[in-house]
Amino acid sequence: MSEIHVDNDFDEIISIELENDELVRLVTSNADVASQYVVFQNSNDEYFAINVAKVEELIEYKILDVTKTTDSSGVMKGTAKIREHFVNIVCFDSWLGINSRDNSIYELVILCDYAGVRLAIIVKSVYGVLNIEPSEMFDDSDKDTRISYLCEIVVNNKKILCKVFDSDQFLADVMPSKFAKELQKSEMISSNDKNVINKEILIAEDSVLIQNAVKQLMEKMQLSYQVFNNGKELLDSLKNENIDNIGLIITDLEMPVMGGLELLKECLNHDYYRKIPIVVNTNMANASIINTAEKLGARKVIKKLDLLTLREVILEYADR
């Protein structure tokens, strides 16, 4: 198995543990640091990244007993039993539109947990765990909906382009029926909530896919709202707003320029902004991150694409 690299900053908080040469487990005692990323390569040796909070384990692909799907040429390659759970196996290359290679080229699967949805992603190799700050990311979603943003990482003393892929788009593409069902739930909402909440809702979310889903919910609820691509855009807008007219802030955590935790910190340290209730809407909420978000003032942390729960949270926490 290839060597796994870890940023020096994480020497004390991340250990990489081998179990009978079959498993690499990422162990973090500080997984609420939203800037930690697992960096991996596809078969074209391009570098991609996924937030470590979404990663449970790295497992050698060759040891998995995969029951193949009837159409193994697609993105979904089959199912395997991993630690007493049946998990769908997805080829990252196929999702990117690259013809998958011979199985021998793929070294690892990344076992991920997206707020309760577990998937194993087949990749060529994993470079390591690196620190990538939101301020170092460039939004590239307008060029490719599968890529959220670009950044530079240092590999063997050379700067290399790395792509942080859009996990929300990935989930929607891999499990379209689940995504469609969540969107259909918003159609069940028949009440006019404008009479209950007459203040504006501010939303920080970088994924166009999730933006559109939340907009659909806001329109259904007939609420006044604004959507921003990151925390800084939302924070800057507050300078020109009458804070008394803002009923709620809904924020993602993983965003370029300024993430959700940074936005929470800024609001907590501001005499007026701290009065606005904030709800976190994310798919990277492990117990540590939830605890950190709540300490920073978040009223609630919920998973994305649960639109009925989001509506309930809005009705519960938004100022009237």
Score class of each variant (00 low, 15 high):
205 E>W: 02
260 G>C: 08
219 E>Y: 08
211 Q>I: 10
237 S>Y: 08
217 L>I: 12
219 E>S: 12
285 A>K: 12
277 P>S: 14
272 Y>N: 11
206 D>V: 07
255 M>I: 09
203 I>V: 12
211 Q>P: 15
256 P>K: 02
251 T>S: 01
251 T>E: 00
280 V>R: 07
224 S>F: 13
225 Y>Q: 02
205 E>D: 05
213 A>E: 04
226 Q>W: 02
279 V>N: 11
219 E>K: 09
225 Y>H: 03
229 N>C: 04
201 I>G: 03
258 M>T: 10
264 L>W: 13
220 K>Q: 15
227 V>D: 00
232 K>G: 01
292 T>R: 07
235 L>E: 01
224 S>H: 08
263 L>K: 07
228 F>L: 01
249 I>K: 03
278 I>C: 06
206 D>F: 01
279 V>M: 14
236 D>G: 03
236 D>V: 05
280 V>S: 02
283 N>Q: 12
233 E>R: 00
240 N>A: 10
278 I>G: 01
285 A>Y: 15
251 T>N: 00
227 V>C: 03
234 L>T: 03
252 D>C: 11
292 T>S: 01
285 A>V: 15
219 E>C: 13
248 L>H: 02
211 Q>K: 15
237 S>R: 06
245 N>Q: 11
233 E>F: 01
208 V>W: 05
226 Q>N: 04
255 M>H: 08
213 A>C: 09
200 E>Y: 15
206 D>S: 13
224 S>Y: 13
231 G>I: 03
282 T>E: 10
284 M>S: 15
247 G>L: 07
209 L>T: 08
227 V>A: 00
209 L>V: 06
199 K>E: 08
270 H>S: 07
283 N>E: 11
284 M>V: 15
250 I>M: 05
229 N>D: 05
219 E>H: 08
238 L>G: 01
238 L>M: 12
245 N>C: 06
204 A>T: 09
207 S>M: 04
290 I>Y: 04
281 N>G: 09
291 N>S: 09
217 L>S: 06
225 Y>K: 00
217 L>D: 06
215 K>I: 15
260 G>L: 09
232 K>D: 00
286 N>R: 13
234 L>V: 05
287 A>N: 12
236 D>I: 06
200 E>H: 14
203 I>R: 04
225 Y>P: 02
252 D>R: 06
258 M>Y: 07
228 F>N: 01
211 Q>N: 13
254 E>D: 10
267 C>A: 03
224 S>L: 10
279 V>G: 08
283 N>H: 13
236 D>Y: 05
223 L>R: 04
266 E>S: 07
251 T>C: 00
214 V>Y: 12
210 I>G: 10
274 R>G: 05
270 H>N: 11
290 I>E: 00
